[in-house]
Design a protein around this nucleic acid. Structure first.
Lengths: 154, 154
DNA sequence: ACACACATAGTGTATATACACGTTTGAGGG
DNA sequence: CCCTCAAACGTGTATATACACTATGTGTGT
């Protein structure tokens, strides 16, 4: 039986490829695994977690320039540009081209707000599952450490 | 003058987009930031960290099937397939098509071993910088938690 | 007014990643 | 011996991500 049919990466928990374990390797591996969980939870909505993040940020912060949006997510500006395209095509965000005052404000649309409201419970489910898997206290520690790690280049 | 010219994502450390912070959001943001650091360290070698990982795993483990290799890195099988292409084109790995005994063994080549030896000190530099940034004890905690997190789907 | 620096954004190209679907090969069952 | 099935793989398509380069407005100094 092994897998239930999906054959998702059944990873090798004991595997450590270097003398001292490569921190980035562990980060990436965890991010991939958790991404798959969250994406699975959002699956029926048609949204990817990245897209969910963008929508939520715009929902909370209001219109932002592409650069500001990218900074909030720790992305390169050009990556954010590309990420916006599918969202724009689905009409979930508007990128405002009026006049082009050297900043192009991105905003969530009504359709975006609508789908966001639908997706939030799905996100919550994944979030809860994660916290149950890790434990509440350890989750808090992890978040703190990840916050510190993300500031490494600054 | 703000940046030294590169204008990498100057992220917004105070930003937390949801009621309870989205665990995946933090994971992704940290992974991106740390990836940039490691990639910068390997830059002059022309290798990406992902490619470095593949080479190192093959160096340590010997020839593996694509599926095994993918599992070690927690990747989808098809992603690993794609990841091997640039490495194969640069002659750093061989993908063995002899007979096709229903498994295609991937192995590191002599050229791969050679570049790997050259890149290892660069990796070590990034690794050391990370540990200094996080502190040794916290790094160990982080690795433990990430290992646990990566087992979430299993 | 003009020139030049700066801030903001887009494009070209390449890698990374996953899912859905099709393909090949070997192993058994009838 | 054929038929089916499972294991391993590839392809099509889409998103995600970054770097190097380009383009376009904005303001400032002379």
């Amino acid at each position: 039986m092994a897998g239930k049919g999906k054959a998702k990466p059944s990873l090798d928990p004991s595997f450590t490829p270097l003398e001292s374990p490569c921190n980035l390797f562990f980060l990436r591996r965890a991010t991939l695994a958790v991404s798959r969980q969250y994406n699975a939870a959002l699956k029926s909505s048609g949204l990817q977690v990245t897209q969910f993040s963008v929508l939520f940020i715009l929902h909370v912060s209001g219109p932002l320039s592409i650069t500001e949006l990218a900074n909030k997510m720790g992305l390169d500006r050009t990556s954010m540009s590309r990420n916006l395209m599918p969202l724009q095509q689905q009409g979930l965000v508007s990128v405002g081209d009026e006049g082009w005052h050297r900043t192009r404000d991105v905003a969530i649309t009504t359709a975006g707000e609508k789908i966001l409201k639908k997706v939030l419970p799905m996100w919550r489910k994944a979030q809860t599952a994660f916290i149950e898997h890790m434990g509440q206290a350890d989750t808090a520690v992890l978040i703190e450490l990840l916050g510190r790690a993300s500031r490494i280049g600054a």
